[in-house]
């Protein structure tokens, strides 16, 4: 039984990870053909960094991820503090409203945002993509900060006021320091989600402003170049590291 269990688990992991492993191995293949191994090489990684299109997309991806994480963290943290201060019923309502966008399929979010931008006659491009990313990041930030607020002693804020702190002073010197671990987790989560988003970005940008995911998609239609293997392998590693960091933080917070 025990060996059977192990084999079963092994098969699952194999099927899960073999495509990525193949991709990573291929990214080091010296030849252009995917059918034949022509020796180890970093040539595609070199070409990747020489390609102005890719470098431009990389810059857009990272800058949008940083800005979206920044804005959504500020908005989400303040929103969480506001929701936390509500009475029970409106609070439950707000949290449900907050959860719905997260369960919504990306394609629905993407199309609805696209329709909104068309309806309001906002030209799609960098700014619309950034706004879209902030929109889908905010609920995750709220969800990360909320448990920290709930763990806080409910008199902490009042104690600060009692000792002479204005509400603003109490926010920066008592509430924020206490919920900071949740804020950082939320920011990292927002950054990660923004970095690897394809669907929503695809619907909310113009063909002239492409992030890495939309670039890979448009190039894949013309046949995949080996540089894409290298790019995908790099994205995978970066996201893996970020996700591990977020998970580690969440784990240690629960302890």
């Amino acid at each position: 039984m025990k060996t059977l269990k192990r084999i079963y688990l092994g098969l699952i992991l194999l099927f899960l990870y073999i495509p990525i492993v193949v991709l990573i191995i291929q990214s080091f293949n010296a030849g252009e053909s995917r059918a034949k191994w022509e020796g180890f090489s970093l040539i595609w990684y070199g070409k990747l960094f020489d390609d102005p299109n890719i470098m431009n997309a990389l810059w857009i991806t990272v800058s949008i991820a940083v800005l979206a994480a920044l804005f959504s963290t500020v908005l989400g943290t303040l929103a969480a503090i506001g929701i936390h201060a509500m009475r029970k019923r409106p609070q439950a309502l707000m949290l449900t409203l907050n959860n719905i966008p997260m369960t919504m399929p990306d394609i629905v979010t993407g199309i609805s945002l696209m329709l909104l931008f068309i309806f309001t006659q906002v030209e799609r491009g960098y700014v619309t993509m950034l706004l879209a990313h902030i929109t889908f990041d905010v609920p995750y930030v709220i969800l990360s900060v909320m448990p920290k607020l709930q763990q806080m002693n409910k008199n902490s804020y009042e104690a600060a006021l009692d000792l002479g702190a204005t509400p603003m002073y109490a926010l920066f010197h008592v509430i924020l320091p206490e919920v900071m671990p949740g804020v950082i987790t939320g920011a990292m989560l927002a950054f990660t989600l923004s970095l690897d988003d394809f669907t929503i970005s695809y619907f909310t940008t113009s063909p002239l402003v492409q992030n890495l995911s939309t670039l890979i998609y448009s190039q894949a239609r013309k046949g995949i170049k080996p540089t894409m293997n290298a790019l995908s392998a790099l994205m995978f590693v970066v996201l893996l590291v970020l996700l591990l960091l977020v998970n580690k933080r969440t784990d240690s917070q629960e302890k």
């Binding site: 002693n153 008199n155 902490s156 009042e158 104690a159 600060a160 006021l161 009692d162 000792l163 002479g164 702190a165 204005t166 010197h173 008592v174 320091p177 206490e178 900071m180």
Partner: peptide, 30 residues
């Protein structure tokens, strides 16, 4: 008058000390 401008101070039921500050900084808060 809001609490931060009243000449009273409160000791709360569950203490409500600030966990991110040490003992001295808790006392020195006001």
């Amino acid at each position: 008058i809001p609490p931060y401008r009243r000449r009273v101070n409160t000791v709360f039921q569950k203490y409500a000390l600030f966990p991110h500050l040490n003992v001295k900084d808790n006392i020195a808060f006001g």
